[in-house]
Simulated assay, not measured.
Amino acid sequence: MKKIGLLSLIFLLIVLVSCSREDYVKSVDGESKIVVEGWIEQGDVPQVILSRSIPINAVIDSTTIFDYFIRSAKVTVSDGENEEVLSLRSDKDRVPPYVYHGSKIIGEVGKTYALKIEYLNKIIKATTTIPNVVTIKSAKYVKENPADAKGFVHLEFNDPILEKNYYQIETRLDKEEPIFVPALYGNLNDENFISPSISLQVTRGIYVLSKTKYEPYFRDGDLIFVKLRTMSKEGFDFWNSWQNEIINGRSPIFPANTSLKSNIKGGIGIWEGYGQSTISIQTPQKK
Results as ranks from 00 to 15, higher is better:
Y214R: 04
I246Y: 02
V181M: 02
W271F: 12
L200Y: 01
P178D: 07
E177M: 13
G205S: 06
D190I: 03
S195P: 05
W242A: 11
T258K: 12
I268L: 15
L209K: 13
Y167L: 08
Y214K: 06
G273H: 00
W242Y: 15
Y141N: 06
N244C: 07
Y207S: 07
K261P: 03
L228H: 02
P178E: 05
G266V: 06
R229C: 15
L184D: 03
G186C: 02
L184W: 06
V208D: 09
I253G: 01
Y167A: 09
E215C: 06
S195E: 07
S259N: 12
D148R: 01
S199L: 11
L200M: 15
R172K: 15
Y166F: 15
R204V: 04
I253W: 03
Q243S: 14
I169M: 05
E177F: 01
E176Q: 14
E170K: 10
F180M: 10
D237F: 00
T230W: 01
F238I: 04
G235V: 02
N244S: 12
P216D: 08
F193T: 03
G267T: 05
N244F: 09
H154R: 11
S259V: 10
I264Y: 00
I179M: 09
R250W: 06
E163D: 13
F218D: 03
K140V: 08
N257R: 12
E234M: 10
V153L: 11
N257T: 11
N192E: 12
E272I: 14
K175A: 11
K265I: 15
K211H: 10
H154I: 09
K261I: 08
R172N: 04
K143M: 07
S259M: 09
E176M: 11
F238D: 01
Y167M: 09
K227E: 14
G273E: 02
F225I: 05
G221D: 09
Q201T: 14
S199R: 12
T230I: 10
L200Q: 11
E163G: 05
S232N: 04
N192Q: 10
V142D: 09
S262H: 00
G273A: 06
K261V: 07
L188H: 00
V208T: 08
K150N: 10
R204H: 09
I264L: 04
I247E: 13
Y214W: 07
K211A: 12
G151W: 00
P146V: 02
E272K: 04
W239S: 06
G151V: 00
A256H: 10
P252A: 08
E245C: 09
I194V: 13
T171A: 03
G269P: 07
E177V: 02
L188V: 12
I206T: 06
G269Y: 00
S259Q: 10
S262K: 00
N263I: 05
L223E: 12
